[in-house]
Write a protein that binds this DNA or RNA. Structure first.
Length: 257
DNA sequence: ATGACTGCCTCTGGCAGA
């Protein structure tokens, strides 16, 4: 059972690349972020032709998340992150699929800081903490997969001094991420590659990809029973180097059945 | 270095991203 998360940065612009990745790597579940499409523009027919059922939560111009599942239809469990009825950003979607609860997460970037965008990020992380606690308390086998916009550790970025003023590396952001792990979630890639040096994102600018100036912000958090099934995990780094690539690379876990 | 790219929806330039 392979579960992947992929910030695709525009489902229309990346559709050929996305279908190619599905065909070549055959994930059982794919959590997508930055779909950047309204609900009615989501290319569900193309995914169905590729053998994937899909649910999505779209928004015009930016944000937008989706869950694809091979040969089955994910069953929606939650369309928004609870805790703020005023929040209209399409950043969260939960579904039951293959006996697990799977969430696709597009956590707010939080820049610039200080300011309302950083406050929104931290408030969103508190809401995610509360939601994650509910799932753990219910002992639901769960995976929280997505673009967390948090660089958890110094060894999760190409240079220790890079991005220190950025919302992705603020102590408050990192503390909120660690609080989530302290509940009992397993950061799959951190567990498997404790020495770090694994990147999931490379900026479009300044030749970041060519210089391998990346960092790790796409994470798969596993509930305890799912963590016990973790066989391997990794990043499909090669896709970042293809034509018309997203600035993120697909990140995945392989679970025993 | 107020830099760099890229997608989106178009007020084809401004916003958002990280």
């Amino acid at each position: 059972m392979r579960i992947a998360t992929y910030n695709i940065n525009g489902v229309k612009a990346r559709l050929p690349r996305l279908l190619e990745w599905l065909e070549e790597t055959q994930p059982d579940i794919a959590c997508l972020q930055e779909v950047k499409s309204q609900d009615e523009g989501f290319p569900v027919e193309e995914f169905e032709r590729a053998g994937y059922g899909a649910i999505w939560h779209g928004q015009k111009s930016f944000n937008g998340v989706a869950i694809l599942a091979k040969g089955t239809q994910p069953v929606e469990a939650q369309r928004t992150l609870p805790g703020d009825p005023e929040d209209e950003h399409a950043r969260y979607l939960e579904a039951d699929v293959f006996g697990m609860r799977v969430a696709t997460i597009y956590l707010p970037n939080g820049n610039p800081l200080p300011g309302p965008k950083f406050d929104y990020k931290l408030a969103w992380m508190k809401r995610l903490y509360d939601r994650a606690a509910v799932l753990l308390a219910a002992e639901i086998p769960a995976v929280l997969a997505g673009d967390y916009n948090v660089i958890p550790h110094t060894h999760d970025i190409w240079a220790p001094a890079a991005m220190l003023d950025d919302a992705l590396r603020q102590p408050e952001s990192i503390a909120a991420y660690r609080a989530l792990l302290a509940q009992g979630w397993t950061d799959a890639l951190a567990t498997h590659y404790p020495q770090g040096g694994i990147w999931t994102y490379w900026d479009f600018q300044a030749g970041a990809w060519q210089r391998d100036h990346g960092f790790r912000i796409d994470h798969l958090l596993l509930s305890p029973v799912v963590a016990d099934r973790l066989a391997s995990c990794g990043v499909d780094k090669e896709y970042r180097g293809r034509e018309k690539a997203s600035d993120h690379a697909p990140t995945w876990v392989e679970l025993t059945d």
